[in-house]
């Protein structure tokens, strides 16, 4: 199975390495490209969207889980 080779074991590791390299490459490109339409001050900061993407992801997970545990999550038979 082709998909298996890509997604599992060595293939998976390779995909992850590609992702790490891509992160570095895009940050480097971001440093050397000039922003044409700077709407906000952060558009000028190289790598801002990397940081913002990562923080967004962590904030979403942590905050949502906290709201869920403290308030929203109920047992599956809650409405029965």
């Amino acid at each position: 199975m082709q998909l298996d080779k890509i997604l599992q074991g060595e293939g998976g590791k390779l995909l992850r390495k590609i992702a790490y390299v891509a992160m570095a490459v895009f940050i480097v490109i971001d440093i050397f490209t000039h922003t044409h339409h700077a709407y906000f001050f952060w558009d000028e900061i190289p790598g801002f969207s990397s940081l913002f993407g990562f923080i967004s992801c962590v904030v979403i997970i942590v905050v949502s889980k906290a709201i869920g545990k403290l308030w929203l999550q109920k047992k599956e038979d809650y409405y029965d």
């Binding site: 992850r16 992702a19 891509a22 992160m23 895009f26 940050i27 490109i29 971001d30 490209t33 922003t35 044409h36 339409h37 558009d43 790598g47 969207s49 990397s50 940081l51 913002f52 993407g53 990562f54 967004s56 992801c57 962590v58 997970i61």
Partner: peptide
């Protein structure tokens, strides 16, 4: 498809994946 925009989106997506991978 401007350079800024593609680079910007790619960073958001890649680093979201990083967060996912860690959590």
């Amino acid at each position: 498809y401007t350079m800024d925009h593609v680079v910007w989106t790619a960073q958001i997506l890649l680093f979201t994946w990083l967060g996912f991978y860690l959590y």
